[in-house]
Computed example of a mutant assay.
Amino acid sequence: MEGTVLKYVSNLLLLLFFISCGTKTKEYAEDVYPFSKFPQVKEINGEVIELDSVLLRYPFRIHVKGDKVIVMDLHGLDYYGHLFHYPDFRYLSSFGKRGDSPKDMLSMENTRFGKHEVWTLDANKNELTRFGFSASCDSLLRDEAVTLDGDLLRSLDFAIYNDTTFIIPDYLGEKRLCWVHRNGRLINKTGEIPSANKEALQDARPALAQAWRSFLDYNPNNGVLAAVTQLGEAVEVYNLKDTTHIVRIGEHGEPEFQVSGGYGIPTGIMGFSDVQVTDSAIYTVFSGTTFKEIARSSGALPSGGKYIYVFTLKGEPLCKYILDHYISGIWVDEINKTIIATDVNNDQPIVKFRFG
């Protein structure tokens, strides 16, 4: 009997040893905080807004300002951007012509409303393009194209900081953010990738930066910049007025990847696909689908996420909305408690949700 007990204890200790070796605790910086639950969880249903005048192949982004709304079609046949009247979504015109000529675009990663203009980012041409409104305000005309600094590696998103400066993630991995003058010149790089992967931080920063690819939004009213990772479940909140920086890591952890040929190959989950900083909160679109599930589905899974996570301006979890549509991009109207979203899985891809 005594020998049996000793054998059991010995096997238990051996098992605990292997478990402890296989689950090393990640050491994050002081400004990184985990989160797993939201104080509120609500289900909301979408109302489809019918469009009858323009065909959208992959409507990835949506932005609203005043009585104008822009829908960005990631895989547009002839144009990448489409201008509508808001809130009735009456089609006005298209812009960002797809083609190989000097004034055409090879891609469009995002669009941003400026004060009196619209900026777009073309990663394939390494350009920011400014469009101005026509005299009738029903179309956008190409005013100038700015070539980005050669030290910027394939920029995939941007935010407008002020009249002269843009913010772009650093995909070289040297820092976290690039500050770029409106003439395309790199001004400065700041911050660090808040990863606990010390080996990648030391030996594979470009691959780590690719894995930490993030979508940005900045609100000049409160000075808050938010960055959410396309992989994993990481939310960064920068208050550019008081220079504070807070990172929230969800239960799925930071972006996971393997290095192959100098590139980061994703191995974890699809994370966030969009973010908006309003005057009072941060709204994000989240998926959570694993790459194993994606591989097993053979392309049958819907694109996008069916969750909207809401955080305070300090990154604290507020609410989790469960949707009846899979969506990619959002625009939030806090005054009227509505969210306009893009659903690439349906022929009528614009959906309105009411929340609150």
Rank of each mutant, 00 (worst) to 15 (best):
E27A: 01
F60D: 11
S20R: 13
A29D: 15
F35I: 00
Y80M: 05
I62N: 06
I19N: 06
C21H: 06
G132Y: 10
G76E: 08
G3N: 13
F133A: 05
N45F: 15
K7A: 11
F17T: 09
V118P: 15
V48M: 08
F60Y: 14
T120L: 14
K103T: 11
H82S: 11
L92T: 00
G46M: 08
Y58F: 15
R90T: 13
D100V: 04
L121E: 11
I70N: 01
D73C: 11
V64G: 07
I49G: 02
C21M: 15
E117Q: 12
T4I: 14
Y91S: 04
L15M: 09
F133W: 05
L16E: 14
A123K: 07
S134D: 14
D52G: 13
V71P: 14
P34D: 08
E50W: 10
R90A: 02
R57D: 13
S36D: 15
G76C: 04
K37M: 00
Y91V: 01
Y33S: 01
G22R: 06
E43K: 13
F131D: 03
S20I: 09
S134Y: 01
L74G: 02
R98N: 12
V5D: 15
L77H: 02
D78S: 11
S107F: 10
T111G: 00
F133Y: 11
F84V: 03
G46F: 13
M108N: 02
H75C: 06
H116Q: 12
T120Y: 06
Y86V: 09
G81N: 13
Y86I: 09
G66N: 13
K37F: 09
P39L: 13
H85F: 07
V71E: 12
T25R: 10
E117V: 00
N11T: 00
F35D: 07
F131N: 01
R98F: 10
H85T: 08
L51S: 07
Y28L: 02
G3Q: 12
D104G: 09
Y86W: 15
D67G: 02
S94K: 10
D52W: 01
K26C: 04
D73H: 00
T120D: 07
T120K: 06
N126G: 10
H116M: 11
L121V: 05
D73I: 02
G96E: 05
P34H: 05
F38E: 03
G114H: 07
F133K: 05
V64F: 12
P59H: 12
T129G: 08
Y8H: 08
I70T: 00
G132W: 04
